[in-house]
Design a protein around this nucleic acid. Sequence first.
DNA 1: CCACACAACC
Length: 579
Amino acid sequence: MIRKLKVLQWSSDVSRTILCTNVTLAQSSKCLTTITNHVKQTTPVYIPITSDHLKHQRTYEALVFPNKVSYPDVYSCTKMIQGHVRNNRLNNALKLFDEMPVRDVVTWNSMIKGCFDCGNLELGCKLFEEMPERNVVSWTTMLNGLLLYKRTKAAEKLFLEMPLKDEATWNSMIHGYFINGRVEDAVRLFHEMPNRSIITWTSMISGLDLAGKSDDALLLFNQMMPSGIRPTSFTFSSAITASANAKDFHLGVKIHGQVIKLGYLSDTYITSPLITFYAHCNDTDSSSKVFNENPQTSVVVWTSLLTGYSLNSKHEKALQVFSNMFRSNVLPNQSSFTSALNSCCEMEDSNKGNVINGAAIKLGLESDMFVGNSLIVFYTKHGNIQNGLSVFKQIPKKNIVSWNSMIVGCAQNGYGMWSLILFNQMISKGMLNEADDITFTGLLSACSHSGMLEKGQNIFNYLLKYKFKKVKLEHYACMVDILGRSGRLHEAEELIKNMPMEPNKSIWLSLLSACKMHSNLKMAERVTQAIFNIDQDCSAAYTLLSNLYAFSGRWNDVLRIRELMKSKGVVKEPGHSVA
DNA sequence: CCACACAACC
């Protein structure tokens, strides 16, 4: 497997020699010895870089132009800047940019985009201000930068005021609205814009799907198809993903047929969502058929298959795929680990997860945030708080999911106090603004599992006062649980009655089990009635009420309930837990 | 040189 490097140009600075995708600086410098030996030749040569040099499975080759020590022309320098940017080496790009004897507008545009791509908004803006002349690409690049960094207001202003616009500009703005959650504005612009291309349609389809409006996305796709606009593989990729999310089996299969006809099927960007699509429709046989019919070397496609099995609770098969990856020389990445660990969570045997943890360490992924987060969940679900904590400590860049996983993990294992301590640590790290509904569900369930009434009330009141993201039904459910367990049955009942949303069955059941716990028959009868209004045949409610009657010695009522259950055909669900 | 697509954590 030989893959040519994108651009290679010899210059006096060795670090500039290798500019290609997927190769890091350290890896590049390892290859330099090889390359330097060839420099004396006069014609360009391809130098294979073997897997010794690269951790990746592929072999690369480098095109070297020997005997050129002076600065390359503007075009080549610009290409080299782009190469550096692709490898996330902003400083190298900037150094070259500064040293170049001549720059044109394309060089400036590439450098500005480079700043944005490498995470430096300010510098990109500064260069945009400084540049001597701007073309439409410059303006659009700037627009994209602002949108990428969520400066939607500034982007809108720029969009209105910029002197030059082309089709890409409009497309940028539409896509930018989507990634900033401004769906209505994107749709508005779509209707307002002068010329819609296939890229516009594709942006709309993927954007609507991203916003959770997969049905609308598919509507648009179906609208577009007969209009004569030729879809690209981008379009199909988005449409398949939308079909997967909408679980529109019929349409997905139809698109599958279309991509076969057009010869797109073997494209990674088609195969992968197609596998996911079938998995979402619970047809993993078709997933594996798509996979097997298209010989795969892409880790993404492998991971789609793995995740598909995992989602369908075919955990053995999922782990089989995971180990087959190694055998096929496709090294799993963060996503693969995440899915494999998800499957391990659902399996009794915790050894599998330990093995996967070992593999993660071997691949240097042990401190990766995604892998770490999954490991925390795996260990805490298996009751191993210690390992969970040590993984947690090892993640250098924790996000809110890391904190949530640890808080929830402690809560589930009865270490409620630790959850609260972790929350305090989270605040002191300045992460309070990141707290979301799951954080608070975790904290409240910690209070409920560990019987901390007062702390639970404080957290709940705090949540109500500051309306973090959104107060959800689960929060009320936890609070009802906390109050109920502590015997504050009337407060719990009041809370349910005054909730801003419709109470569901499980929240009433939680109160009912509290009634049983604290032998409040009168309330239990009321609550059961409320449950029957939602679900007439709720066996858990029948059982709880009949247990309570039995406990109070009201055997006639016990018999009455049993008869009622029999006549209604309600079966007692074994092992049903209410909490 | 600017615009659209794949897998992943609570």
